[in-house]
């Protein structure tokens, strides 16, 4: 059994990255491996916005990812600094439900528990 972590750096709506990450994460669990955490950095922090508004016939990867992580009890972390720099959240504007603010230091520390880090 392998312990994975996923690092997302590509934007949600604007790229395929997060969708691929979600499919990969499901496959990892199906094959009996585990995921220590998923960390959003660079443009991937856009997934943590609670202002995402999509028509019903377009996949909401941000919501699917949050729902998947909640069900599987996988910490879904985003870099607060990267999010603040993009104007995504503040003291009065929270992140989307299911997304947990963290720092690069936490991501760095968590790498000690991880066998493989996969980046999307």
């Amino acid at each position: 059994m392998t312990t994975f972590a996923l690092l997302l750096t590509s934007a949600g709506f604007a790229s395929q990255g997060p969708g691929s990450a979600l499919q990969f994460a499901r496959a990892v669990l199906q094959l009996g491996h585990s995921i220590d955490h998923i960390f959003l950095y660079q443009d991937a922090v856009l997934l943590a916005s609670n202002q995402i508004d999509l028509p019903a016939d377009e996949p909401d990867i941000s919501a699917e990812l949050a729902e998947f992580c909640q069900r599987q009890q996988i910490p879904l972390l985003f870099c607060v600094t990267a999010a603040e720099k993009r104007g995504l959240m503040s003291e009065t504007v929270p992140a989307r439900n299911g997304y947990i603010g963290a720092g690069l230091a936490e991501f760095a520390l968590r790498q000690s528990n991880v066998d493989k880090l996969v980046q999307f």
Partner: peptide, 19 residues
């Protein structure tokens, strides 16, 4: 783009926790 800059921050954070 901000890629290089944010990657540098990540590198320093990794080094700061002794990787």
């Amino acid at each position: 783009s901000s890629h290089g800059r944010e990657a540098l921050d990540l590198l320093l954070a990794m080094a700061a926790v002794e990787h």
